[in-house]
Simulated assay, not measured.
Amino acid sequence: MLVAAGCSSDSGSDDGGDKAASASASASPSPTVQAAAYRTLPEACGVLTKKTLKDLAPKAKSGKQGSSDDVASRASCSWSSLDNNGVKGSQFRWLNVSLLRFESDTTRGPGDKLAKEYYDKQVGEVRATPDAKSLRAEALAGTGDEATAVRYDLKKKEGTFKQQTVVARVENVVVTLDYNGAGLAGDKTPDADALMADAKKAAKEAVLSVTKANGPGAAAGSPSSAPSGKASGRPSVTPSDAASASASGKS
């Protein structure tokens, strides 16, 4: 009887320790992460002023909004400009602005950190563009928290395309602006310096639109999942596609 009582006492002591340990574990605080600064994105086709659009894509009638299942996290818009219907010497321009916003995530980290990682990846992909000629890259001041401008040439059967890409990050949002031009049907090749100056101006406007859309002192809400890094902010239309559109007379 004494032995049985002793065993019963020991067993009760173990159960109490297990319960205490369980209670202690359940009382541990959940992991937290700093909220992202920006909670939304501006309407993609409205990030540039009418004057800027007229300068960069003078023959574009309107912007074409890209498809997105969540316009508060990812959005894009493109403009195509072609004079003389692509014949008798024509100037072609194609402009695309892509916006990608990252939320803070308790597993992956703060939104601005995730945006920084994507920004670095995006710049690397642009600099590694296949068949790019005379590629030059430079840091761009005064455009968000950080920005890089890349230019290069792409030679196609329709002509030489002068490509300008500006990738910028402002807080937890990455803005990618692609702008290319070509002289088709015997027209002269556009000046790359002039195209880059226009691209830089437009990129600054797009970044400013992101800031304005979130208002002064913007603060994000509760952490949630960030957009997957697999979703690229690069345009869905390439210079080759643009050339095909030019040859068919589409604007």
Rank of each mutant, 00 (worst) to 15 (best):
V3S: 15
S9H: 11
S11H: 05
D14G: 00
K19T: 13
A20Q: 08
S22V: 10
A23V: 08
A25Q: 04
S28G: 08
S28Y: 06
A36S: 14
A36F: 07
T40H: 01
V47H: 00
T49L: 07
T49M: 07
K51D: 15
T52I: 06
L56R: 04
L56C: 12
G63A: 11
S67Q: 13
D70S: 08
C77N: 04
S78H: 03
W79D: 04
S81R: 06
S81E: 09
D83G: 11
N85V: 03
N85I: 01
G86Y: 02
G86T: 06
V87P: 07
G89A: 12
G89I: 10
W94C: 03
L95T: 07
S98I: 00
L99A: 11
L99P: 11
F102A: 07
E103C: 06
S104V: 01
T106N: 15
G109F: 09
D112W: 00
K113P: 04
E117D: 12
Y118L: 06
Y119F: 15
G124S: 08
E125D: 11
V126M: 00
A128D: 13
T129N: 00
D131Y: 11
A132Y: 02
S134E: 15
L140G: 01
R151L: 10
R151G: 14
Y152D: 04
Y152G: 03
Y152Q: 05
D153P: 07
K155T: 15
K156C: 08
K157P: 10
F161Q: 03
F161M: 09
V167A: 11
A168K: 02
R169G: 05
V174D: 00
T176F: 02
N180G: 09
L184I: 14
G186H: 02
D187W: 01
T189G: 10
K201S: 14
K201N: 13
V210R: 04
V210H: 09
K212D: 15
K212Y: 09
A213G: 04
A219L: 14
A219F: 10
S222Q: 14
P223H: 08
S224Y: 05
K230W: 08
S232G: 11
V237A: 00
T238F: 00
A245W: 12
S246A: 15
S248I: 01
K250G: 03
K250F: 06
